[in-house]
């Protein structure tokens, strides 16, 4: 009986009427808490829309975004063009052809190799010649069964190079000795002995990023930009077989 009386008192209409709004409020705040204020934020956005800032700043942001997008597209197009050019060079050149060295003239005035493979084997003038370790030079002339290589050390050899990682660009000059000279184009290049020299990405003659050698000594006093002697990673006097493409 006592239990029944207490229950009827709890369900009393007046009590329900007085506590109901509090319960609704509690429920509302619970929803707000769980949704992290989303309904309130949306409500605020709808209510404050007439007072939002003018469209000028929004236009500026859109324009800057467009500029950024255009720049990214230009950069990507540049990269794509370079990749396509590189791929084109590779496609034109075909597969690597292995050839024996049948004669070498690596004395002072000329730095040449004679290879025992020529036009019949698919070698073309201007093809790149590499040995174990790195680039040796280019094919300067071809006969049906032989081809002549102008080495990187030849006094008339000029090759566009850069330090690995694209840090500094320069030209590699053959000087008739076993160590060609690299002359950098920029004065602010930081080069030190041990830096790896590779073929330049800007070169239209050699494929990019082929290893040439290692900077052996640096002359920072040379003007207008630093110079360095490069120890080639493929020694022409010891190589008996080369690859041509």
């Amino acid at each position: 009986m006592a239990m029944g009386r207490r229950l009827s008192r709890l369900l009393d209409r007046s009590l329900l009427l007085s506590t109901g709004p509090w319960l609704v409020l509690l429920l509302f705040f619970l929803v707000v808490r769980v949704s992290k204020g989303a309904p309130l934020a949306d409500l605020y956005a709808q209510l404050s829309r007439p007072f939002w800032p003018g469209s000028a700043q929004s236009e500026w942001l859109k324009e800057s975004q467009q500029l950024e997008d255009q720049q990214r597209i230009a950069t990507l197009e540049g990269r794509l063009a370079r990749l396509e050019q590189d791929q084109q060079l590779r496609n034109q050149a075909g597969d690597w052809i292995t050839a024996p060295v049948i004669s070498r003239r690596i004395e002072g005035w000329w730095q040449q190799l004679e290879l025992g493979a020529g036009r019949v084997q698919g070698i073309k003038t201007g093809a790149v010649v590499t040995g174990p370790g790195g680039v040796l030079g280019r094919i300067s002339s071809v006969t049906p069964s032989t081809s002549r290589v102008q080495l990187l050390t030849d006094p008339s050899s000029r090759v566009g190079v850069e330090l690995q990682g694209g840090r500094g660009h320069g030209l590699l000059f053959g000087e008739g000795s076993s160590r060609p000279l690299v002359k950098f184009l920029n004065n602010d290049v930081t080069v030190q002995p041990g830096d790896v020299v590779v073929t330049s990405r800007a070169s239209s003659v050699f494929p990019a990023n082929l290893i040439i050698g290692v900077v052996q000594s640096v002359n920072t006093q040379a003007g207008p930009a630093p110079q360095g002697l490069v120890q080639l990673s493929a020694p022409a006097d010891q190589i008996d077989w080369v690859r041509v493409r």
Binding site: P155, S156, G176
Partner: peptide
Amino acid sequence: LSASFALQLHWRGGSVALAWQVSLAQ
């Protein structure tokens, strides 16, 4: 003969680092 090679290389913008040594040895 070596001097003529050195001169022609010089005119073409090239150079041989050890020209004297090379010429004398030959």
